[in-house]
Design a protein around this nucleic acid. Structure first.
Length: 346
DNA sequence: TCTGGGGTCCTAGGACCC
DNA sequence: TCTGGGGTCCTAGGACCC
């Protein structure tokens, strides 16, 4: 979906159409979640500090995120798609992969699906088609907004040969930096490197994997029922907290919220962990695995508190989090007819 | 008035077992 | 006089994604 959260907001605030609109949190440490294309012209993009966005574009309209609304609209969108295609892998609220190989004319099918989404939901989207997930994803990104692009792997290689490796999902800022330090700045260069060199630089598995990505080789199949492996609650404080006596009540609040979510969904896990980000932005995690899965506030909080006391943060703390991992296959019995709702929520 | 929240996956090292 | 190889589980950190 194109600028999904903003697009949903514009449906309830049509008077804002054409204006720079930014969805972001409200606190002093908030970041931008989504910016409208009008706001992007000013350099406002996802993940930049809201304070900076305000300076870059003082006239922008800032809205707090309404995730309930986004989830509901997401469900609408995925329902439209699901009505047209059998194999669907939903990735987050605003993105999905579909298998068009069931159609004799995939391009026509893609056109139809894209049109149906916009017609039925009023929301714009971009669609990319390719022989694998990687090409499809890059193609859909390359033509945004309101895009439609079909590429073969060879076409993708040729078209993006001179682009930065950053174009490929999975190659982030750190990897781009490490590549640049070795003189590699384009996908063509990366794709041309021998596996042995890549293995030396980035490890036996990761290195050659990056080379394949750069050549748009991708064997991944669609995963239509992803099972959640961990669940967490974390919060960044408006101002850093100092000392266990200030932190423990916050930890208990987080544990309470996490336990409530876990219980509501019938999930539990054997590993309880905490996450602490200090004022120097260093992040520290601690975890303990229990003999049996837990989901109740007492168990989660007592382990988390113990871990926090042992860590005893040596500096002011800006973020605190609690996590439960090692989820058992605690499938909740679902009534027949709920199947369509299952994929999004879990 | 730098840097959210909720996730996944990978790596590396240690403990432990056969 | 000197110590293999393989496997699993666990922890911590980090890169990355939406």
């Amino acid at each position: 979906m194109d600028a999904f959260y903003v697009s949903v907001e514009l449906q309830s605030h049509p008077e804002l159409r054409g204006l720079p609109v930014v969805v972001s949190g409200t606190g002093p440490r908030a970041v931008v979640t989504t910016a409208s294309y009008e706001a992007r012209k000013f350099g406002v993009g996802s993940a930049i500090p809201a304070s900076r966005a305000r300076r870059l574009c003082p006239d922008a309209v800032f809205l707090p995120p309404d995730f309930l609304a986004y989830r509901a609209r997401s469900r609408d969108v995925m329902d439209v798609v699901r009505a047209q295609v059998d194999v669907l892998e939903v990735v987050g609220l605003d993105e999905a992969y579909m298998d068009l190989s069931e159609f004799e004319r995939p391009r026509a099918a893609g056109r139809r699906i894209k049109a149906a989404v916009t017609e039925r939901t009023g929301l714009a989207c971009s669609l990319g088609i390719g022989p694998n997930k990687l090409v499809a994803k890059v193609a859909s990104d390359a033509d945004k907004p309101d895009g439609f692009l079909m590429l073969s792997a060879a076409e993708a290689c040729a078209r993006f040969a001179g682009h930065s490796p950053r174009l490929v999902p999975g190659i982030g800022p750190k990897t781009v930096e490490r590549l640049a330090a070795r003189g590699i700045t384009t996908l063509a260069q990366l794709g041309g490197l021998p596996d042995q060199r890549l293995a030396e630089w980035f490890g036996d598995r990761l290195g050659p994997h990056m080379g394949r990505l750069a050549r748009f080789e991708d064997e991944r199949v669609l995963d239509t029922d992803r099972v959640r492996k961990s669940e967490s609650k974390e919060t960044t404080f408006d101002r850093d907290l100092v000392g266990l006596s200030a932190l423990e009540p916050e930890l208990e609040r987080l544990a309470m919220g996490l336990a409530a979510d876990l219980t509501e969904h019938g999930r539990s896990g054997r590993t309880v962990g905490i996450k602490v980000r200090l004022d120097d932005f260093s992040t520290h995690t601690r975890a303990r695995t229990l003999p049996a899965p837990v989901s109740d506030i007492e168990a989660i909080f007592s382990v988390a508190r113990d871990l926090l006391r042992t860590l005893d943060p040596p500096r002011p703390v800006r973020l605190l989090g609690v996590r439960v991992a090692g989820m058992e296959g605690t499938a909740v019995p679902v009534a027949v007819g709920d199947a369509a709702q299952l994929d999004l929520g879990v």
